[in-house]
């Protein structure tokens, strides 16, 4: 009888605790949402004061990825090449340059991340449109592609950004060159394979970066009247051969062009070529 009584009391206490915690959680959520709305409203007002309109579909809830250090892993690289070339041979050309070759093509991979693919035989033959062929080749090599919204999928030179953990690396771009519908050459820069260090701190979120952008417009005399795209991603900078830093940046597309802002400093950056 006493045990039952005790259980009832504990049950009552737990009910109360649950109710209080739920109330606190809901209160937090409501406060957070209204603060976020107020922050966004102030941002829109701030940008409007500078004569900049935000596209209505701009997602202001986006967050920046974590910065990280990525290194080359020759075993993983070999596996990627397997996806493109099938059974192949490889040779160390010195200076961090590796050659991979098979009857399907030749690939030169540099310690700077530069990559050249010269397709031969079947790889060069048409399998779907140029766009589809490119995507298939990228996926076969284990790379996740990203293209800016609205990119023209036709044409003879098709650029694709490589991604790291789902975020585009804006200056790791592979360009697929076609003659008619036949792939002739792939050149550009790719991301390395293995993460060795990661910053525990995320960069600025969308609202903070747009606040920094408003300051840049004011201080640096940037001219624009409408902001249409906002994408978080990375800038890759290769330090030593086979080692790169992925630094979080934001890509902003305006009616007058595009620019990149560091997610760490909020400053406008020029991507390393």
């Amino acid at each position: 009888m006493e045990t039952r009584q005790l259980e009832r009391i504990i049950l009552l206490i737990l009910l109360l605790v649950n109710a209080v915690l739920l109330g606190l959680l809901l209160g937090d959520r409501v406060t957070e949402a209204s603060a976020e709305r107020a922050r966004e409203e102030m941002l829109r007002q701030l940008l409007a004061d500078s004569g900049i309109e935000l596209a209505p579909d701009l997602d202001l809830g986006q967050v920046s990825p974590h910065g990280c250090t990525v290194v080359r892993d020759l075993e993983l690289e070999d596996q990627r090449m397997q996806g493109i070339l099938g059974e192949h041979v490889r040779a160390d050309e010195g200076g961090g340059i590796w050659y991979y070759g098979s009857e399907l093509g030749k690939i030169m991979m540099h310690g700077t991340g530069e990559l050249t693919i010269l397709p031969l035989g079947e790889t060069a033959e048409r399998r779907g449109s140029a766009w589809e062929q490119s995507l298939a080749l990228l996926r076969a090599s284990g790379l996740e592609p990203w293209t800016p919204p609205g990119q023209d999928p036709t044409g003879t030179d098709l650029p694709f950004c490589c991604c790291w953990n789902g975020s585009p690396v804006f200056n790791a771009v592979l360009t697929f060159s076609y003659a008619g519908d036949k792939l002739e050459l792939v050149t550009g820069t790719t991301v390395f394979h293995r993460e060795t260090a990661r910053s525990p701190v995320r960069g600025m979120d969308a609202v903070s970066i747009l606040t920094a952008f408003a300051a840049a417009v004011k201080n640096q005399g940037l001219i624009c009247s409408r902001l249409t795209e906002l994408t978080p991603g990375y800038e890759m900078s290769v330090g030593l051969s086979g080692e790169s830093a992925l630094e979080p940046v934001w890509r902003l597309v305006m009616d007058t062009g595009e620019c990149y802002l560091s997610a760490e400093t909020g400053q406008i950056v020029r991507l390393q070529v």
């Binding site: 910065g67 250090t69 260090a197 910053s199 525990p200 330090g239 080692e243 830093a245 630094e247």
Partner: peptide, 13 residues
């Protein structure tokens, strides 16, 4: 993600 948490270096060492 809290501010002030020591950041690991991200630049190539």
């Amino acid at each position: 993600d809290a501010p002030g948490h020591a950041a690991a270096p991200t630049a190539p060492q």
